[in-house]
């Protein structure tokens, strides 16, 4: 499978990654090579095989619905690039 530069620009946009335009051709080549490798999946017979999500086929554990963690908003917001009055600040979204 071969990707083109436009595919790569589109993937980068979906992934919210800014890629320098000059680097696009290199990503196109490298990603195409990875997908060539991935084509080896087609050599395995997977008819009637159930997909595997957890190596021990464990299912999500349930617990009683009670509060177990304390609110640590101030401690966590100290890590934020910009926070004020208990809010995370980002560039204006709506004019």
């Amino acid at each position: 499978m071969v990707l083109n530069d436009e595919d790569v620009r589109n993937i980068a946009r979906l992934a919210r990654l800014q890629i320098d335009e000059a680097d696009i051709p290199l990503y196109t080549t490298e990603l195409s090579r990875v997908f060539d490798l991935v084509e080896q999946l087609d050599e395995v017979n997977i008819r009637d095989i159930i997909p595997m999500a957890h190596p021990a086929d464990a299912v999500q554990r349930l617990r009683t619905d009670e509060v177990t963690e304390q609110n640590q908003r101030e401690k966590f917001q100290k890590l934020a690039p910009m926070a004020e009055s208990g809010l995370y600040l980002v560039p204006k979204v709506i004019e």
Partner: peptide
């Protein structure tokens, strides 16, 4: 999905 099947194999 295909990879998860190969994984089980």
């Amino acid at each position: 999905l295909k990879a998860q099947k190969v994984r089980r194999v």
